[in-house]
């Protein structure tokens, strides 16, 4: 864990020419950056490349970083934009949200997996921006402000968007569960 003061010191060291200090920042934020890229690209290989590219861009633009915002928010926005441009260029096909959760799949109960699959199916009815907003909002460490900043949206607009997306998901889920019940 890096404190805000430590983070500022590391940024100063990097700006002073000590490149190795950047490795600590990369190490600290790599999972968050990678998760953002995975949510956007839904492809781990592409996401890894996009997240790395985001870190490289952030390094080159570090001198322009004004410290009024948090470094993390600034970095996530760069990673977000990089991943979005990767998606536009490569037109990666969409897949379900939980398709990458392999580690704990075996431990999960069948019922939980079913619910996940149904929510994933319901997600297909959301537009891409809503889907992304909701997924980023549920990464525990990201506040609503951070997600709004990352996506370049007004916070109130984003809050409404996330509320409506969840309502829509609940409605779609209800329909799916009713259909499933009828086929039994």
């Amino acid at each position: 864990m890096i404190s805000l003061q430590e983070e500022n010191e590391l940024i100063d060291q990097v700006l002073g020419g000590k490149q190795d200090s950047y490795a600590r920042l990369v190490d600290h934020y790599k999972s968050y950056a990678f998760t953002i890229a995975v949510k956007i690209l839904e492809n781990r290989g592409e996401a890894e490349e996009a997240a790395q590219d985001g870190f490289i861009k952030a390094f080159h633009y570090l001198k322009d970083f004004n410290r009024q915002a948090r470094f993390s928010t600034w970095l996530y926005r760069i990673v977000f934009n990089t991943a979005v441009s990767y998606k536009r260029k490569k037109r990666i096909p969409l897949s379900g949200i939980e398709s990458h959760d392999r580690a704990d799949e075996q431990e999960d109960s069948l019922e939980r997996e079913d619910k996940k699959a149904f929510v994933s199916k319901a997600m297909d009815h959301l537009n891409e921006v809503d889907r992304l907003a909701i997924q980023l909002y549920y990464i525990k460490e990201f506040s609503l402000e951070e997600v709004a900043e990352m996506m370049g949206q007004n916070m109130n607009t984003l809050k409404v968007r996330i509320h409506r997306a969840r309502q829509r998901l609940a409605d779609e889920l209800k329909k799916i569960l009713n259909e499933e019940a009828l086929t039994l």
Partner: peptide, 10 residues
């Protein structure tokens, strides 16, 4: 279900 999503590791 949404809250159960975890951080991904590169």
């Amino acid at each position: 279900v949404l809250a159960s999503s975890k951080l991904e590791s590169p």
